[in-house]
Amino acid sequence: MGILITVLIFLGLGVLMGALLALSAKLFFVPTNEKVNEIRACLPGANCGGCGFSSCDAAAEAVEKGDAPVSVCNVGGADVARQIAAIMGEEVGEVTRMRAQVMCSGTKEAALKKYVYEGAEDCAQAAAIGGGNKLCPDGCIGLGTCAAHCPFGAIYIREGVAVVDHEKCMGCGVCVAHCPKGIIKLIPFDSAHWIGCMSHDKGKEVRSYCDVGCIACKMCERVCDTGAITVGDNVASIDYGKCVDCGKCVEKCPRGIIWSAKRQGNGEFVISRKK
């Protein structure tokens, strides 16, 4: 008899708790915004954090509140922006898909070092010691902090320099934020050319420590028909709004640091520079 009463008491307790929860669910009901859910459904859901929000959920909420533009997601690109714009009832402007590009060509052989680094495999740690072990103040340290943080596994280290895999890069920009040297830039996904150096040192100095550094000779600036390349602060840079990917600068560069990435007829992706 005793056990029966005990069972009944616990049954009662369980029902009571269940009823309490059911009641409070009604009482404390918070209407979730239908729009947020719809926007969230459009986002890729990788939670990469490239947009600056902690998760895709947070980004969706910010978009709904108007704190973020409909083009918040770099990864989703134009498609997602269009979908979100449809939900928000907004017109979407032109959205260009971006990709990351490491602006350094200084491989182990090409760039001289100032000391032997034997610390943790982390660029930020190495950068704290005299700005990294390369003599170049804007050279890739090559310990792979960007690769470690890439949510899509799109960066790897080749011959001491970080390289972005164009097929995998989603342009989220996480690596840009984590590079202690600030030499990773987001450029339009379809642009075929970039300048593999960001050293602001004078040409003579650059020559002394790197075989593939920009010496600011302005050859590219002169050969460029559209005025897309300009040399300022001792380094060349491309204005992607003007660049037409003609490739003349690639041929002209005496240091061979203007890279081109062209898709061949058979779909193969060839990345090259003049040696």
Binding site: T6, F10, L13, G14, M17, L20, L21, S24, A25, L27, F28, F29, V30
Partner: peptide, 25 residues
Amino acid sequence: YLKTIAFILVIATLVQFIEMFLRKY
């Protein structure tokens, strides 16, 4: 002697309840 079971029940309910309450207020 059934305190362990009763407590699990109570704590689980309590956490759920607190969560709903906090979300609202």
